[in-house]
Design a protein around this nucleic acid. Structure first.
Lengths: 222, 222
DNA sequence: GTCTATAATTAGATAGAC
DNA sequence: GTCTATCTAATTATAGAC
């Protein structure tokens, strides 16, 4: 639990509050540790990318040590896959819910609201973009896994649910629309500190999120 | 010049061809080595990010060794700054030329052609995006330097040369337009192998580049 | 200018005490 | 389940021969 040389955000002493409650079973204590490690891993991988994120730093962020991290996740690759599973799994869940909610709207209104909600979700979960870009330019095992396990499903759904056509494009343009949409929506949140320094606008503020949602919805579905 | 354990692309034996020509001065030989190292560094930093790219691998890609790399660039940070200077410097140069070329066009046509040429340049130089995203989410010294030295100038130019207003937006929306445009234009090229596997379309092909240019120009300036 | 050898750190993975 | 200690390998930076 010693702080590694590489600096990372200081954390509130989670364990301090846990001590005030009656002791839980060792099993659920383990589950809680496992969860803290996973949350810390998502944060670290999103911040620095796979190679640059260290398991020592992740363990430190999770208020534990590297030995215990290895107990819960035998290898760094296992930990990355668990982190990606959580990130893309919750994204999938939200998008599927959303498509059901919007089932009765007319195609154009549905496409616009889908995009707006996609912006809101991306602002709250900027790690999605970092995982995708970090694993986008080299076709290693992790990249292939990410594409085959999660992105393919999303790409197909966008076509089948008519988001592409509702926005006024042919299905043959789907690849261009797909990446243009994700880039237009997510880049600003993925480089939020950069944006703040460059423009003075902090894109994480609620007003900025809504402004971005409106702008991108107008871009894609005028 | 020994190959590092971490694999990278194999290179043609540049030195072999150099041997067939009359010997050049040691000064210009050094310049050539310096240049090969810089090109290799841009490639490696764009592929893997600052931390994950190793100076040994960069030296190997440049057909030399880590000792000589350190002779030309005393520290990894120096090398990164030289690589970023080259990348953003040539981008600045092209964009400034372009604005002069388009000086006599009407505002809307100018904005559209500016975007199209921005797409073409981004396809040929995908490293721009990786540098920006890699240094976007943490406000370290390199990020601040990048924003203050290069991005600020581009952001101001886009407003002053009327690209924002010509596209039909208020200057107050400039931050949103700026990042939405860059994301919509560049993501697809930055994750080209990902796009190829996901959609079957290789965005690096000339036809795909033109299709993307047309689509994004229509998005931003309908 | 070039390259080999090496020092000082840090990395992921493992062993074992409690 | 938790944590300390340690192994092996990779990292940046440096020293010095040629």
């Amino acid at each position: 639990m010693t702080k590694p040389k590489v600096k990372s955000k200081s954390k509130a002493q989670i364990k301090a509050t846990a001590k005030t409650r009656p002791a839980k079973s060792t099993a659920s204590r383990g589950e809680a540790t496992r969860e803290r490690i996973l949350v810390a891993a998502i944060e670290a991988f999103a911040e620095k990318g796979y190679e640059a994120a260290s398991t020592r730093d992740i363990a430190y962020r999770a208020e534990t040590d590297q030995g215990l991290l290895t107990y819960h996740y035998p290898s760094k690759d296992d930990l990355w896959r668990a982190a990606a599973d959580r990130t893309f799994g919750s994204f999938d869940k939200r998008m599927d819910e959303l498509l059901i909610e919007l089932d009765h709207a007319d195609p154009k209104a549905r496409a616009r609201e889908f995009i707006r909600e996609f912006v809101r979700f991306s602002a709250a979960n900027p790690e999605f973009f970092r995982f995708m870009v970090d694993e986008g330019n080299l076709l290693d095992d992790r990249t292939k896994w990410l594409v085959d396990t999660y992105l393919k499903k999303r790409f197909i759904t966008m076509k089948e649910r008519g988001i592409i056509r509702a926005a006024g494009y042919e299905d043959s343009q789907a690849p261009h629309v797909f990446y243009a949409l994700i880039g237009a929506v997510q880049l600003i949140f993925a480089v939020a500190p950069n944006c703040k320094r460059l423009t003075g606008l902090d894109p994480r503020k609620p007003k900025a999120i809504e402004a971005h949602a409106e702008l991108v919805a107008n871009l894609i579905v005028p």
